[in-house]
């Protein structure tokens, strides 16, 4: 089996903050309904969320959007603190949460600089008829369990299996394999693929965009979120372009 290292590119310059990814994720991954009270207690669960940052104020005001989700860090701060190895790094570069191991200490969430992990404070509940919508490929997490973005691993598993059935390997850019958020995104701000496959669009693009400026050649727009923490994320963000802004210093 070929080596896979799943990664994502998020182009902030394309993201418009429309929430399509958020709802697509909730539908695909059986995320409990975020009721009003859950928001009020700051306990809503959104594996992918759109953060909004203000700059300036009226009339020269700007709001910038950025989708934040589990960065599948290669050196993930959440992993070493789990007392029961419920979270670990697998061979495909994914930061995995094993629900049946989790005992709910919430150490991992507290140690995650991206705040991408969510705790089930309540038993998830749906009215009987809404349960018909639940995705049978994804475990319904019960109360007391940590959960987070999985890069829709159920889709990766399904397409790898279906490709293997025909004696092939999954193709990069296969819509069946792409996470729900990527397929939904109207502006194509999200790109998903195999970073280890040197022919894949995502590995080429991330290499190109992560280039540092050298001489007269400008650098790419790529950066890792909170890079200075040394988490080595597998998600590359592409900078927002704003001709009126000053270049923020980017150095390693």
């Amino acid at each position: 089996m070929a080596e896979n290292k799943w990664g994502m590119i998020v182009d902030i310059d394309k993201c418009i903050g429309c929430q399509a990814c958020v709802v697509a994720c909730q539908s695909e991954n059986n995320i409990p309904i975020n009721e009003e009270g859950h928001f009020n207690q700051r306990r809503a669960i959104e594996w992918i969320r759109i953060e909004r940052y203000w700059e300036g104020e009226f009339p020269n005001v700007r709001a910038r959007f950025v989708p934040v989700f589990c960065q599948q860090c290669d050196d993930a701060p959440c992993e070493p603190v789990c007392p029961v190895y419920a979270t670990y790094h697998n061979s495909e570069g994914l930061n995995v949460q094993v629900y049946n191991r989790c005992i709910g200490t919430r150490f991992c969430a507290n140690n995650c600089p991206y705040q991408a992990r969510f705790f089930n404070f309540w038993e998830p509940e749906w009215p009987e008829s809404l349960k018909n919508q639940l995705n049978p490929d994804v475990t319904v997490r019960s109360r007391g369990i940590m959960e987070k973005c999985t890069f829709c691993i159920q889709r990766i598993r399904r397409s790898t299996r279906e490709a293997a059935k025909d004696g092939q390997e999954v193709e990069d850019g296969d819509r069946g394999m792409s996470p729900a958020c990527v397929n939904a995104c109207p502006t194509h701000a999200l790109t998903f693929g195999n970073l280890d496959d040197s022919d894949s669009a995502i590995s080429k693009q991330s290499k190109e965009e992560l280039k540092q400026p050298a001489g007269s050649r400008p650098g790419g727009r790529g950066y890792h979120m909170l890079e200075h923490l040394g988490t080595h994320p597998n998600v590359v963000y592409l900078k927002k372009v704003d001709k009126t802004a000053e270049e923020h210093e980017v150095h390693g």
Partner: peptide
């Protein structure tokens, strides 16, 4: 035998 073979 990776956990995510069966658990996700």
């Amino acid at each position: 035998t990776d956990c995510t073979t069966c658990h996700y």
